[in-house]
Each structure stands twice: as structure tokens, then as C-alpha cells.
């Protein structure tokens, strides 16, 4: 799936069912975040929820092509994500 709006407290209620549906319906659940222009902790929280829910059914939830603001947040929160290439890890912001 692809999210092309902001991932914030304003859109969290709408995004939650979409993310859960992706996990339920897709054999390889993933989300393309290349078009996300704004993300806050509510958005981050949804990604963490999705990852946990996917793991609960034995799948890996992939975060694909995070946009710059998403990268900043993942790095700030030290949350790892799959990049297009090999595993890359978010380090702490310095």
C-alpha cells in the first residue's frame, strides 16, 4: 500500500484501518512512504502497531522508501526499517 497524505494525529483514525487491512490482506505487507510530507508521533505509533500486528501473524511489515521527514522520525526514534537496498538501521539523531 502507499500513503500519500500526512501521517499525523489528524489522519491517524483514518490510517489505522488501512494499515491493518494491508496486514490482513497482503502476504508481504508493506507500505510505501515516499510521498509522506508530514509525520508525527501518532503516525510513528501506527507504524509500530502495524509492525507488531504483522509479527503476530508471522509476517514482516516493511516500510518502503521512507520520505525525508519519515526518515528523520524513524531515526529520531531509533526505529529500524527496510530500505530498498540491504537492511539499514536508524541511528540516534545527533
Amino acid at each position: 500500500m502507499r500513503i500519500d497524505q500526512r501521517m499525523t494525529i489528524y489522519t491517524a483514525a483514518e490510517l489505522k484501518p488501512r494499515l491493518l487491512a494491508e496486514i490482513a490482506d497482503s502476504a508481504v505487507p508493506s507500505v510505501d512512504l515516499s510521498a509522506v510530507q508530514e509525520i508525527d508521533a501518532a503516525g510513528l505509533q501506527l507504524l509500530l502497531l502495524a509492525r507488531r500486528e504483522a509479527a503476530a501473524v508471522g509476517r514482516e511489515f516493511r516500510i518502503l522508501e521512507p520520505s525525508e521527514c519519515v526518515r528523520e522520525v524513524l531515526s529520531l526514534a531509533a526505529v529500524s526499517y527496510m530500505d530498498s537496498g540491504p537492511t539499514s538501521l536508524g541511528g540516534p539523531a545527533t
Binding site: 491493518l20 505509533q45 531509533a78 540516534p92
Partner: peptide, 22 residues
């Protein structure tokens, strides 16, 4: 900031999770 660990364990089951709650 030299280290961060984000804790998400308080997120309840998906059904009960309120996306507007932290």
C-alpha cells in the same frame, strides 16, 4: 542524544487501540 529506545509495548490490541491516544 546518544541513544534512544522507543517503547511501544503499551499499545493495546489492535481493536482497542485508539489511534488518537498516545
Amino acid at each position: 542524544i546518544v541513544a534512544v529506545t522507543t517503547l511501544a509495548h503499551e499499545i493495546p490490541a489492535a481493536d482497542e487501540m485508539d489511534p488518537e491516544s498516545c
